[in-house]
Each structure stands twice: as structure tokens, then as C-alpha cells.
């Protein structure tokens, strides 16, 4: 009986709203957001207890496995480079002329004092590979209709046991995401805004990350320029390029 109702409901919903499945939604989002490569100029504003500071950087990303970031300002961070290849991460600091591999417990440190940890940046597995998603509802955020997806981890080695993502039903862009501990405790929240159309894709130009356990206003990540499918020379994704 129950089964029948479920089938009926789903048929009904598909018919009425053309409601896709959770995985379909995620795939659509993926398609919208990812490109062969992208070059992003951004500024990250970190709100500290005492003062805020803004770091600008340019990142080159190819697929999900390779990424290279160079910090442009403030002067202190200028020339600092970060290279991510597969599951390894190196940082080069020009003042010390050292390449330091971020590994083990250091991955759990925050990136440049932000509310993001290196690890948050590192996990590049496809959401659909490590979580089972379920569409659980519809909500309105800032006047936009969203699907609410709840994701449960399907693999053991994962930082966040579950996530909740709000996706714009029209533009297939996430507007809000929450990360949870195994116990269900909310750990981090990110809110995307300023959704802009770039090269035919909808893209959130501002993301605010917040570690929910810490006090403070979180970290604001603002894209000042984004380009897709550029010619990125392969050599920049090498350790040798860090020192250049």
C-alpha cells in the first residue's frame, strides 16, 4: 500500500512539477558549475574578532584534480602559491623560498585564517560518489524557489557525515549549504549570493563561509573575475612552477 502511494506520488509530482531526482539535480548543478578549466580572480574577506582583512588571489583549476592559486595581495601574502595535485597540497612562500607540503594534521588548519580548512578544499570527490542524495522539500530563499537536498555519506572516510543543500530550481545553482557532524550537529554553513550569468552559466559570485561553532561573521569569498575554458599552460601544475 505504502509503495503504491510512493509511486503514485512520484508520478504525480513528475507530472505536476517535472520534479527530477536528487541525483539528477546534482548532476545538473555539476554541469552548470564545472568546466574543463576555469580561471578565477577573487577576494576573500576574513572577519576577525578585531579586524577584517582581504586577500586577493587568482586560481587556475583544471577538472577537480589540479589547481594552482597565487596570492596577489596584501603585500604580506603576495607571491604565496598553493598547488593541489590529486590529494596532495603544497604551499610556497616567497619570503622563505620554501615549499611546504601540507599534510596530516596540518590539513585541518584553516586556510589563511579563514573559516575554511585545507581539507575542505581538498575533498574533490564527486558528491554523488560519496553521498546518497535525497530530495526532501522545497523552500524559498530570497525570493527564489529551491529544492532542498539531504545528503548522507556512503563512504566512511569523509569529513562531514551529512550535508543539506538548497538548489535554485531554475538556475541549478546552490544557494545555501550546511555541513553536519555524525551526530547531526551543524558545523559549517555557506551562503551563496549574487548569482550572475557568466558564459552561459549561472554562477554565485559571493560565498560566505561560516564555521558555526566559532563566533564571528565568517569568511566572505567574492569572485571578481571568472573565465571558463582558457588556455592554461600545463607546467603551472608542477612543483617547479611554485618557485617561479
Amino acid at each position: 500500500m505504502k509503495k503504491v502511494i510512493v509511486i503514485l506520488l512520484s508520478v504525480f509530482s513528475v507530472a505536476a512539477y517535472a520534479q527530477p531526482t536528487a541525483d539528477e539535480i546534482i548532476n545538473r548543478v555539476d554541469k552548470n558549475m564545472s568546466a574543463e578549466n576555469q580561471v578565477v580572480e577573487s577576494q576573500m574577506t576574513i572577519h576577525g574578532r578585531r579586524a577584517s582583512r582581504t586577500i586577493t588571489s587568482v586560481s587556475y583549476t583544471v577538472g577537480d584534480k589540479k589547481s594552482f592559486t597565487e596570492y596577489l595581495s596584501p603585500p604580506r601574502e603576495e607571491g604565496t602559491k598553493m598547488l593541489k595535485l590529486e590529494d596532495q597540497l603544497w604551499i610556497y612562500s616567497p619570503t622563505t623560498d620554501r615549499i611546504i607540503q601540507i599534510s596530516g594534521h596540518m590539513l585541518r588548519q584553516s586556510v589563511m585564517g579563514s573559516d575554511l580548512s585545507y581539507e575542505d578544499m581538498m575533498d574533490d570527490r564527486k558528491l554523488t560518489d560519496v553521498y546518497s542524495a535525497e530530495l526532501t522539500g522545497n523552500e524559498e530563499i530570497d525570493g527564489r524557489q529551491t529544492w532542498v537536498l539531504e545528503l548522507e555519506a556512503t563512504v566512511p572516510d569523509i569529513a562531514y557525515a551529512s550535508r543539506k543543500i538548497w538548489i535554485d530550481r531554475e538556475r541549478y545553482v546552490p544557494l545555501k549549504e550546511e555541513l553536519f557532524a555524525k551526530s547531526g550537529q551543524l558545523l559549517k554553513r555557506s551562503i551563496m549570493s549574487d548569482i550572475t550569468r557568466v558564459d552561459g552559466r549561472w554562477y554565485p559570485m559571493v560565498i560566505v563561509y561560516k564555521d558555526m561553532m566559532k563566533q564571528g561573521e565568517g569568511t566572505e569569498f567574492k569572485i571578481t573575475d571568472i573565465k571558463f575554458n582558457q588556455d592554461i599552460p600545463e607546467y603551472i601544475f608542477s612543483k617547479a612552477a611554485l618557485k617561479q
Binding site: R53, T80, I91, T96, D97, R98, I100, M106, M112, G113
Partner: peptide, 16 residues
Amino acid sequence: VTLIGSTMNGGMAIFN
């Protein structure tokens, strides 16, 4: 040796 720490405003400090 290199010190990896955090700056006064929370940034990453790397210093030889």
C-alpha cells in the same frame, strides 16, 4: 628551520 604559525590577524605565517 621554518616556522609555520599564524599571524596576529589569523593569516598563515611562514618564516625561516
